[in-house]
Design a protein around this nucleic acid. Structure first.
Lengths: 227, 227
DNA sequence: TCACAATGTAAAGTTTCTGTAAAGCCCAGC
DNA sequence: GCTGGGCTTTACAGAAACTTTACATTGTGA
């Protein structure tokens, strides 16, 4: 049973961003752009979790949260533009389950959603992390953050692991450097695209016995070989 | 397809500074020194991103931002002289994508511009990759950027692939060389139309077992055979 | 058939992109 | 503070692709 996440924000950009990450992680996503619609959707559709922006046209996030709490204990993650606002929310004790300031890292949003759903409990240990991936003689275990080639462990650093995982989860698909920066580094990373190249070089060096290799698609990006 | 950045500031010094850094990084730069001109240029020229000073003669930055947002979701980076103003901007939630205080570090401006442009479109472009196309014994997979004839992979270079994809997506339709330059090379390509011919020649050579061939429509252009 | 324009194509010239080593930077742990 | 490890930036060389050029070939209309 896939979880349904309701994302409420008046900026379509934020909704699109969240949707991209959440759907890639196997969630269904619905959205609303104002407080009234949000409140109605929460009570009618009973999503598994709500991501709720504080500033909304019409009924604001605080008000939505208060009203919803009268009838439902759906987990709520509040988004705020300024970190100081968090104090306000917390002070009001209106029952949000977690808070994030914009601009937020989508990977962090994902992590908190998973944490809360896990806490809310449905016994599924497996929605914490994707299942292990095996490609030829390569094994990637996201939960343990372990990689093996022919059963021999390979010592990867954080970015190397994330990069490999991203490529392996979409074996054969070409990722542009920009795409990889978005997926692995987060949408607010402000560095150069060449950073990706350096990590790919490290990976290739450490994985030189790997059956599928990381191919360069000239002028486009990288992919984990399919064949 | 280089991005065009509009820099709006009443200080020519700031514009020159930004222009120097941005152009060195491969961006095209246009500029305006007052709010009205800025608003008109944004709506008319549709720049990829706007750097907008808060304090402007005539219509100020906040007002420009608000007006523009009614018709466009172009990414906007606001510049302010004092850090306290940032709270004001953020509090107003008028849809700026990022903020910088003057005096700003030009390299940081560059980094934020790159980050925003990256999340704005490049990243999503991959998600919207069209589905694989099959024409007779030819298979084109845009997501993997792979081409097969009778199941045998064909090694194409970037432009060759893009060209084939463009023709295949409109099988039977005649493309003029100019049209192909627009679609494949981008509207700002400054080269000769004969460039297309050369790539078509390469393609024909690599795809010589392909059932539908690339036909020359004499005096008009090329098309991928329908029958 | 001839003249002329359009197209095919090989090869040279040019540009862009990538691999990689090394330096710089930042932060957690001591 | 210092130190070490990991991450990012930078610089440069080499590789690969792209564009231009020049000449050959083909198609068109008189």
């Amino acid at each position: 049973m896939t979880d349904n996440i309701l994302v409420v924000d008046d900026e379509q950009r934020i909704i699109d961003l969240a949707r991209m990450y959440l759907e890639q992680d196997g969630f269904r996503v619905t959205s609303a752009t104002n407080g009234n619609a949000a409140k109605n959707m929460i009570l009618r559709d009973k999503p598994s979790l709500v991501v709720l922006d504080l500033m909304l046209p019409g009924m604001d996030g605080l008000e939505v949260c208060r009203r919803v709490r009268e009838e439902s204990d759906v987990p709520i993650i509040m988004l705020t533009a300024r970190s100081e606002d968090i104090d306000k929310i917390v002070g009001l004790e209106l029952g949000a389950d977690d808070y994030l300031t914009k601009p937020f890292n989508p990977r962090e949003l994902l992590a908190r959603i998973r944490a809360i759903l896990r806490r809310a409990d449905r016994g599924n240990a497996q929605d914490q992390a994707p299942p292990p991936i095996t490609i030829a003689n390569l094994l990637i275990d996201p939960q343990r953050r372990r990689v093996e080639i022919d059963g021999r462990p390979v010592d990867l650093r954080m970015k190397e692991f994330d990069l490999l995982q991203a490529l392996a989860q979409n074996k054969g698909v070409v990722f542009s450097r920009d795409k990889l920066l978005n997926v692995v580094w987060g949408y607010d990373f402000a560095g150069q695209t060449r950073t990706v190249d350096v990590h790919v070089a490290h990976l290739r060096h450490k994985l030189n016995g790997m059956a599928p290799t990381i191919e360069t698609v000239w002028g486009v990006g990288y992919r984990l070989d399919d064949r």
